[in-house]
Amino acid sequence: MRIQAMLRLGAWALLLVSATAIANYRFDAPDDFLAEATAWPAWAQNLERHTIEREAIRRCLEEESACSGKLKSLRYILVKGAALDRDRQLRLVNRYINKRRYRVDRRQTSLSVVPGGEAELKNHWSTLLEFLKRGGDCEDYAVAKYFLLRELGFPAKDMRVLVTYEKRARDYHAVLAIRRDDGSSWLLESDDTIVKGNHRRYRFIYALNEEGIWDHGE
């Protein structure tokens, strides 16, 4: 009887672990790769603008007097953050970015009429400095964390801006997914939490970074 109970318990534990593992975000789903990052013009333009901004960030890091505006506090975060281990860098960046003002980017959802009478949907992605100046919505938080962690040396292949449908909030929500050394994935949330073990409350929609776009299907 005891053995049967233990076996039953073990089976349930295995089922729970398997279900959690399946529910967690995976970086290694090759069938989900949709296209190169350049296939999405608004995202590609954001990457280009960030490349230009990186020059200002580099100059500021090399010479403090070259820092103006938000670059001063950003420089401080980068200098101090460089001395921390990876886990603490993630916590620092998550907290630092989450302090920014939340603001719905109306340009992201608005339609504008262009010459000829056609309406086109304008999508807007913020760069790191644009976000630090103006704030933004959850997508902007995730993108800012991505760019800041890149400055701290996190590889692009281990990070993705991940758009999800969050079942609790019943709304679409973006987080930054991080692949850890052990293959697990952590999600950096805009409420200061880092979701490590259980991603069941999310339905994954799509993800992107500077290397590509992944379609998780909706």
Binding site: A35, D105, T109, C138, A169, D171, Y172, S190
Partner: peptide
């Protein structure tokens, strides 16, 4: 598919 993805309104606040 990209157009569909672009039209998803991602603005949940926490």
């Amino acid at each position: 598919r990209l157009t569909t993805m672009e039209q998803i309104n991602v603005t949940a606040e926490k």
